[in-house]
Nucleic acid binder design. Structure first.
Lengths: 254, 254
DNA sequence: CGGCTGGTTGAGGCATCTCAAACGCAGTGG
DNA sequence: CCACTGCGTTTGAGATGCCTCAACCAGCCG
């Protein structure tokens, strides 16, 4: 590992605060429930059911509203001017969609349902007006944007510093964490994504994803459900973290 | 290129709106000037000079203030619990620092000056209070966060879809664009980063960065100043974009 | 059944990493 | 002034991890 910061402080000590932070906001399920309740009470929300494959909004569309996921799973897909496209983020219940449209007045991504779900449509002008009257509302919006920023950075970190197998393991761990925060089962998760989509999200090819999953299964870190390879059993989420650390240690001890 | 979205719409047509968007907010220099003026008039800012290598804040510190870059160049460094670290973003005049601390109440990154510069310290509680009274202020904050989100996603896209040479070219193009938006010269830029830092930011090793720069220079897309290899001449920014497209086309036509 | 989509696995190729050597430059101290 | 050192950079040669190409399988649906 090459030191980047000019002051090579005890980064390990500082970094160790991150899990502590995560532990601090343990009742994330409550946070989401309160967010939805707050929105429901303060704003005129339009509920919109979206079926698998349908778009909530498209890149280039004029930005007028934000969306909060109330049910289902959504992906945002970023497209460059020259046609490259990438799954930029995955969004579960309680997550917001469309923040990236604020700056330019147009959405920068497509938002697509991966499953039949429901979003709450929140007019941005009304949200702004309400934010200025209700501090809790403004805090909620800032917090959501801030969290998304932090998530994106952690994704970048994983992309840049983890080998393929570990990246897949980290991806599954994050998914399980997300489910756990929402009070859902984490021992058997169903990825509503093809290998190609996962690979696109993680910056690798579908075959590499497939191989990584096979290796994780061979090492008993995950298991495959008998009902198709889309369902993945995670007997121990912690084992995924250990796997990531091990694959780092393997290369570190040159 | 593998299609990700279930509806294989004419993405090229949609994507082509992105440059149009970029052109729309052309007077970015004015935007920054107005932002600084707005902050100066509405908030009690504390000016803080930071020298090269010094930290504005550190990961794990309690979040109490945001910072706006008034002069100099800053990087934010993200550190994982297991010690991996990555340059997560570069911040020029007019950019905000510290948004990622809002959600958890603690900063998630180190913010480090790459050069002697100045940040304006803005207490977050005061900012919130002012945002609720001044719509323009709230809009400015939202816009800044939104823009950072979009930038991060474009970084992820480059990381995942561009080969090393193109990634370096894209990096230089972004840097030049940033300078241009601020009304600065783009034909000769000084990277205040080592090859190792650039590589860390772009997800590659320092040797790969060095080779990529050498190849760009050999192809006359960039040039090296006679005063050290840190200064890079960019006679034509557009040539960098073309280089990126060409390296994509090369692999696409298998 | 036959076609289609998604998944797995193998073999070989290539881009990037690793390791190593050498250079330029700045600072330091004799 | 000149060694000497340390850091950043460049370049080469070899190793390797991931990609490419290809074959095959399983489930699904008309």
């Amino acid at each position: 590992m090459q030191a980047i910061s000019p002051t090579p402080m005890t980064h390990a000590a500082i970094a160790s605060c991150k899990p502590a932070i995560a532990a601090a906001h343990r009742p994330a399920g409550e946070r989401i429930a309160q967010l939805l309740a707050l929105i429901d009470s303060e704003l005129t929300v339009v509920r919109r059911v979206v079926h698998a494959g349908e778009q909530v909004y498209r890149a280039g569309e004029v930005f007028e509203a934000l969306y909060v996921v109330h049910a289902g799973l959504f992906k945002t897909v970023n497209v460059s001017a020259d046609g490259r496209e990438q799954v930029a983020g995955l969004h579960f219940k309680g997550d917001w969609l469309g923040f990236d449209g604020i700056a330019e007045g147009r959405f920068g991504c497509d938002a697509i349902a991966m499953d039949t779900g429901e979003v709450w449509v929140i007019r941005y002008d009304e949200l702004l007006e309400r934010c200025s009257r209700t501090p809790r509302m403004m805090a909620a919006v800032h917090t959501a944007m801030s969290r998304e920023l932090a998530r994106d950075r952690d994704s970048m970190l994983a992309l840049c510093t983890l080998p393929a197998d570990a990246r897949v393991a980290d991806f599954l761990r994050n998914w399980a964490d997300t489910l756990e925060q929402r009070g859902l089962r984490t021992d058997c998760i169903t990825l509503r994504m093809t290998r190609a989509e996962i690979g696109n999200f993680l910056g690798m090819k579908l075959e590499t994803v497939s191989r990584a999953l096979s290796r994780l299964a061979r090492d008993k870190v995950i298991g495959f459900s008998e009902k198709g390879r889309r369902d993945i059993e995670i007997p121990d989420v912690e084992a995924l973290r250990v796997f990531v650390e091990r694959s780092l240690a393997a290369t570190t001890l040159h």
